[in-house]
Amino acid sequence: MVLFLAPLVVMLTGSLRPPGLPPPRGVELLPEGAGLAAYAATFELVPFGRALLNSVLLAAIMVPLSVVTASWAGLALAQTSGWRWRTLAGAVLLLVMVPATAVWLTRFAVFKVLGLTGTAVPLIAPALMGGSPLFVLLYAVAFRRLPQELFEAARLEGAGPLRLWRSIALPLVRPTTAAVALLAFGLSWSNFIDPLLYLSGEDALTAPLALHSLELLGSTQWPVLLAGAVVVTLPAVLAFLGAQRMFLGEERGSGWLGR
């Protein structure tokens, strides 16, 4: 456990070193003259505020969108049978097996034809397929565990698929939603390659890109880089700490698979 936290602690203490000093010669737990000077420099050198705002906005669109589409697809997967199920399950499994790196190039070409490079659409679009096929599977597993009778009863009252989703299925799998939302947040927050390919200009920076452009500063400015890394990491850690109760819970029966 200490081992897993060590890198993060090192990142934090490293970021507190005053920038511009010669590199350390020995192990230091808390650097001398620790302070927040590196953080000030971080925001001065790169428009980090703007970048954070952009990233927050992206996440604000992508997380709900991912949750909606993933839970829809998950519910469909959990309820259907026969060829419909086979088609759907096949599609999801195929997606699981395609490395994201395999479709970079031609996805770029597709967006180029659509005239959408240079906009935020290519970044958001993956949320329309649930963010990741994994999320669809998580929802499918969770929905499968709900008693069928609930759905049948509602159907007899004439409820359509959307109604079933909204008033029966979704409220019963809150832990799964928490887990998917967290993972979707992580996905959108740390997305580095898409903004790198599709966006340009200082006002279109996202947080990971801003950190990347800090990188040129070189090794004497390590505190500044580490401060940037902390700034980019902090929201993700906070989101995790907020949601961890939901899916790392103690007792059997809780947990992100919605048991």
């Binding site: 992206l58 604000a60 669109i61 240079g118 935020a120 966006l199 279109a204």
Partner: peptide
């Protein structure tokens, strides 16, 4: 969502 989208697109689009 729509609002956020509008702001973001405005910010990112060149």
């Amino acid at each position: 969502l729509a609002l956020a989208g509008a702001v973001l697109l405005g910010g990112c689009k060149r």
